[in-house]
Simulated assay, not measured.
Amino acid sequence: MTLAKLSNNWFPSFPSLVDRFFDGELMDWNSSNYSSTNSTLPAVNVKENENEFLIDVAAPGLKKEDFSVNYDNGRLTISSEKKNEKEEKDGEKVTRREFSYQSFQRSFTVAQNIVDAEKIEAHYDNGILHISLPKRDEVKPKPTKQIEIK
């Protein structure tokens, strides 16, 4: 038995979804990493509680030295740059050389005068960059004051 592609004679200039799938256009998702630049923006979770903003950036495969975290005038910027160069030699002749360059930048704006910039902390653990932006004492919710009735 031989498998053969069926062509759509009515609209020859429009390839069918099946044709594009088997041609590799739709099957090659993993090798392109969902973009033509072989990089993606990492997923980010942002949480807020009464004391701080918490930001988790999923960036496995990186080291803490690969990150740069800056806070300026209510704007938090997280960036990373990683370069890899692998070369295999056979004597003096280069047989294969591979380059890899990955970078990203994410920025978040927080309303002015909310974050205590001196207390911002970041740490990288198990592929996740954790950033804590503590709120200034003046903007934290105050506990309810019980007023005595006389």
Rank of each mutant, 00 (worst) to 15 (best):
P134N: 10
L54C: 01
H123I: 05
Y124T: 00
N73M: 07
L6D: 08
P143F: 08
A58F: 10
S103H: 07
K89M: 13
F104G: 04
L3I: 10
K64P: 02
K83R: 11
K5R: 13
S36Y: 09
K145P: 02
Q105K: 13
G61K: 06
V57K: 09
E25N: 06
D56I: 02
F53W: 09
P143K: 12
N38T: 10
S7W: 00
Q146W: 07
E92S: 14
N84Y: 10
T77F: 06
N49F: 03
G61E: 02
L6H: 04
I120H: 05
I55E: 04
A59K: 01
T95I: 12
L17Q: 11
P141G: 09
T77S: 13
E48V: 14
K89R: 15
L76A: 08
K86R: 12
N49L: 06
A59M: 04
Y101C: 01
V57G: 08
E52M: 14
D19F: 05
A43E: 12
K83D: 08
W10E: 08
A59D: 01
P141N: 07
S100I: 01
P134F: 12
I114E: 05
A43N: 13
K142Q: 14
T95M: 09
T95H: 04
G61T: 02
S32M: 14
S103I: 00
F22R: 07
D28E: 11
F21I: 05
H130Q: 11
M1S: 11
S132G: 01
K140T: 03
N84E: 13
R136V: 07
K89L: 14
G24C: 06
T37K: 13
F14R: 13
N73F: 04
L129T: 01
D125Q: 13
Q112G: 09
F22A: 05
K47I: 02
E25C: 01
I120C: 01
N30M: 06
S13N: 11
K86P: 00
E98H: 07
G74W: 06
A59I: 00
E121R: 15
N38V: 10
S68F: 04
K150A: 14
